[in-house]
Every structure is written in structure tokens, then in C-alpha cells.
Nucleic acid binder design. Sequence first.
DNA 1: GACGAAAGTGACGGCGCTGTCCCTATTTGC
DNA 2: GCAAATAGGGACAGCGCCGTCACTTTCGTC
Lengths: 196, 196
Amino acid sequence: MRLALVHELQAAIPACVVHAAATIATALELIEANQFALILIDPGLPGYDPQSGMDRLKTISTIVERTPAAIHIVITGAESAQEWEEVRTIGVAGYIAKNSLKPGTMTAILQTIADHGCCVGLMHETSMSPEVYHTVLSPREQELVQWMMQRPANISRKAIYDQLGEHLNIDAASAERYYKRAKAKLLKLGQLPDSI
Amino acid sequence: MRLALVHELQAAIPACVVHAAATIATALELIEANQFALILIDPGLPGYDPQSGMDRLKTISTIVERTPAAIHIVITGAESAQEWEEVRTIGVAGYIAKNSLKPGTMTAILQTIADHGCCVGLMHETSMSPEVYHTVLSPREQELVQWMMQRPANISRKAIYDQLGEHLNIDAASAERYYKRAKAKLLKLGQLPDSI
DNA sequence: GACGAAAGTGACGGCGCTGTCCCTATTTGC
DNA sequence: GCAAATAGGGACAGCGCCGTCACTTTCGTC
């Protein structure tokens, strides 16, 4: 889980160094030994950390107080607008619900913080369409299949190719070829979804 | 977060197809449209799902009842030995705490289920050493640096190379070269950690 | 002074993913 | 019927990661 966050961060910030801590104790060691520009805090479940009986708010404020030079973002599983208000007064710049953390969201969040000084929030899942992942497909192929499966019936495939070309900065023709290769792979392995 | 789980699964099971659902509603659609061999359930935070007021146990039992042919594993953030006992009687084969979910754990869990029929549990973090991730390093290099930083003072680097060679099925000499290349990269970019 | 452990550097083949280009049937719509 | 969209397959260069081989230098110790 930590790793997933690290990857999101690395995707959002090219050429960065990320330190991760499993417990509050190690986190406190880290912020004493290093100067961080950005700190993500996941307070974990209430009263979870075995090392200390600290609760969520105490955990957050402790870290924020000891690192006044850094920008702070709280990642939480149990989102709460009230908590967001509370941590905001402490000096936290962002508050993200894990549920709204899709690939790329981190980039957007950081951008918003950079622009509007601080302050971002939480939104609920909008796309509830199921997701399918095939190990035989490369990431690009995977993405193409994903997009194509979400295509509304009244839109031509060609339009999707164009969209994708723009979105990924590649030729629409290349996008087309990706999709075809992906489909061929799935067909050969008998993993052809009905929805294609 | 879902993605992280999917990746763990894909790493554990070569050549598989993974379906993922963001909500119980979509999950129920999926299990009606497909025949699954393995089902991971993350009941989420208590009373979280906006679509239904189902609580954790109800969510789990609903899914288990409707898919008698599948093996079920529950992934939870708020681990509880009592809950594990409860879901076990329902027919759940595994119970994993998110905190003990390190890369590779999934493989071990599935192996244990395959061997011992069912039944796996939860253990707390043992290694609390901090983790560092550099975008400039390739995964292999990253791993090498990680290992080397955890080296006890009384063990020669050569011994680590041998360990790694065995662990990764590569030449100890190659491991040595990886480490050196990684160090060179970090040095050139001024990101040299003190602990090397 | 000699010898071995450790450090630093350069180069190479293999492989998979990416993005591109080209060519041919079949189906769909006007 | 004709044109455009859809479907299918084959080839290629670039690039990064992986694993390997070889060579030089520095340091500490015996």
C-alpha cells in the first residue's frame, strides 16, 4: 500500500527521492534526519499504531509542527469534511480520500496546491464501470482496451482513436494498432471479453 | 489502491485475468456475469459504501454465498482476530491485514492456501527500517540499494552480493555491478544518502 | 612490499515495450 | 455501387532494463 503511494508520487514528480515509513516512530526519525519538501500522512486506522496510543489528529499535528518548512497532505481511508477543516487550521495543504485516488490524481492534486496556494478536497467515485486487467497485455495495450470498453455505443471507434492519440501524444493510427494487437492477443489466449 | 492489489495478484499468478470493482454494486454485477476462481474482498471502512448500508460481515457473506465455487480472501485495514474467526465459519479461506501486505506476500498466502487447504492470517510489521525510493534508479538498482542499506555493520559487502545473487538468481558479480551503477547514478545527481 | 578486498568505469547482446509505417480483406453507411 | 470505417496481420528502429564479461585503481592488512 505504501508502495502504491510511492509510485503515485514518483509518477507525479519526475526525478524525486521518496522516503517511506511504516510507523509513526520511523516517520519521526526520518523528519529529524532529513529536510523534506512534501510530506504525505496516512494516519491509518484509529488507534492503530502499536508503538503509541496517538490518535489521528495528534499524529498529524505532531508531524506538521516538527516540519514547518514542508507542504503537508493527508491521505485517509475514512474521509470526513470535518476532519479536513480541522487539519486545515493546523496547516495541512491537502486532504485526499483513498477512494478518490485514481492513477494521475496525485499529479492533479499537487498542481492545484501549487496554483491555489493550498487546499484540495475529496470527491466520490464517478466512474463505477468495472475494470479488467490481463497479464498478457502490456500497459499501453491494457489502457487501450480499457478505454475502448467504456466507449458509448453511439461513438465510432475512430473517434476513440483520435481521443487517445491526443491524450497520449501518439498517432491515432498507432492507437488503432495497439488496440488491434491487444485484441489479437486476447483472442489467441481465449480471454476475449464479451464486451468487445 | 485497487490497482496495487491487482498488481500483487498479477505478480502472484502468472497469466491471469483480474476484474476489479469499486463498489459492492459493481462487484455483484461482476460475480453474476463471470465465474471466478479467486475473489479478494476489501470490505472497506465500516458503513462506507454509499450505495448500501451493508456492514462488513454482511458484505462478505453476500459475496461468498453467491460464489460457492470460488476461493475467498478478505483484505482488511482494521484487522481483528475475532472477525477472522467469524468469516472463517462462513467459508472464507484467507484473511490478510493490509499492513502485512508487502511485495511478495500475496504469493506466499496463495501458496499456503493451496497447500494447507485454506486458512492464513495476519502478522505485524517486523522490519521497521525506513525505505528510500529514487526515481533515477531502475527497479533492480533500487532493490540492491535497499538491501545494502540494511546491511549490518559486521557483514562484508561481498556476503551481501552472494546473498542477493542467490535470492535473485543472478551472478553475485552482477549484483555487485548493479550496486555500483546505482551508487554512481546517485552520486552524479547529488542524491547520495549518508548511510552508504 | 605483496596480496586481497573493495571501489570505480566501460562495453556488449538479449529482450520487451513503444511508436511508426505498410498492405489487405470485410463490413457498414450514404 | 462506392467510400469510409472496421478488422486482420507483418515488419522495423529506438530505448531502457537486464545480466554478463573485462579492466583499472585504491585501500587496508599481513
